[in-house]
């Protein structure tokens, strides 16, 4: 049966852990996987600008021995002629074996999955979900901490529109003993329904604060985010909030020595470059792990045994 990944909750915790194991095995034995997707094609349909995610998907498919068909902007596709997402998905199903779709509209990858005859991966739909970033985040946490439970995780920055935050909170809420610290300006607080339907429903302890410095010593993981210009209708609000939290070596002084700093990237100025060489900075490794997780995911959805 065709399976897609639209929301991180489409995968069970067991499946995510299996994929982390596969990703670790790919890191150890890349040659073993170099022809797993020979003869298969990934359609990378990116209707919104992306560098990391698109290249990560393309690199993942190439490293599995497969090929990539690519649409890198809405302007260069039939979407500019008014073709619907449903029709695009039906047509691409004729040419490719799996779709990775990024779209500015929330729910577009779900519409694609409802109409495609091949698996669809949500590579980011507006400010809604970004499940493969979550797979990268989970893999990073697992590799850096050796566990996915009993962690104090600080989420900092734009928690309102930050889709990676929403998905990671959903994923980590399924593990016992985790505790969340939500650090954001009031205007960018985590939406109430995620607090209620995800965090409180799973009986996860959480604290909401505006001060990063105050909570820094408690954190096992600090998940930084960028205030994204494209999520604002009003430029004034963006300019007012964009520099709310900037992580500097000074602020890190009170942090634990085993803190792991994650960021979905791209970064603008919210993490000082002076931190890049700090052993606690994991964000570049995180991008690498993302590629391995996407390889594991592509194989899983295509029904290819690792």
């Amino acid at each position: 049966m065709k399976r897609s990944l639209i929301d991180i909750c489409d995968l069970s915790t067991e499946e995510i852990e299996e994929m982390v194991d596969v990703a670790k095995d790919i890191m150890r034995n890349p040659q073993k996987y170099s022809e797993k997707c020979k003869g298969k094609k990934l359609a990378a349909l990116f209707f919104e600008p992306s560098t990391r995610t698109r290249l990560s998907f393309e690199a993942a498919m190439y490293e599995l021995g497969g090929n990539v068909l690519s649409v890198s902007s809405a302007d260069s596709s039939s979407a500019s002629k008014g073709e619907s997402v449903a029709d695009t998905a039906r047509i691409v199903s004729c040419y490719a074996d799996i779709i990775a779709m990024r779209h500015p509209k929330e729910g577009a990858p779900l519409v694609a999955a409802m109409n495609a005859s091949i698996p669809v991966i949500n590579a980011g739909d507006g400010g809604h979900n970004h499940p493969t970033q979550t797979l990268a985040d989970i893999c990073t946490v697992s590799l850096e901490k050796g566990r996915l439970n009993n962690l104090t995780v600080g989420f900092c920055g734009d928690l309102k529109f930050g889709r990676t935050v929403h998905s990671l909170i959903q994923a980590l809420s399924r593990y016992s003993g985790n505790r969340f610290i939500l650090i954001s300006p009031e205007e960018l607080n985590l939406p109430g329904y995620i607090k209620k339907d995800v965090i409180e429903k799973n009986r996860i302890e959480y604290v909401q604060t505006t001060s990063l410095e105050q909570v820094m010593p408690e954190l096992d993981i600090l998940y930084m985010t960028r205030v994204q210009k494209e999520r604002f209708f009003n430029e004034e609000d963006y300019l007012r909030l964009k520099d709310s939290y900037i992580l500097t070596p000074e602020k890190l002084k009170s942090a634990r020595s085993d803190l792991s700093i994650l960021h979905p990237l791209p970064r603008v100025n919210e993490i000082s470059v002076a931190i890049d060489n700090d052993p606690r900075a994991c964000y570049f490794k995180q991008a690498l792990y993302g590629k391995y997780m996407r390889m594991a995911l592509i194989m899983k959805l295509l029904g290819i045994e690792p």
Partner: peptide, 13 residues
């Protein structure tokens, strides 16, 4: 009624 929802632009859905 979410202007960011795919249903806001693809009205046949």
């Amino acid at each position: 009624k979410n202007p960011r929802c795919i249903t806001s632009t693809e009205q046949e859905l």
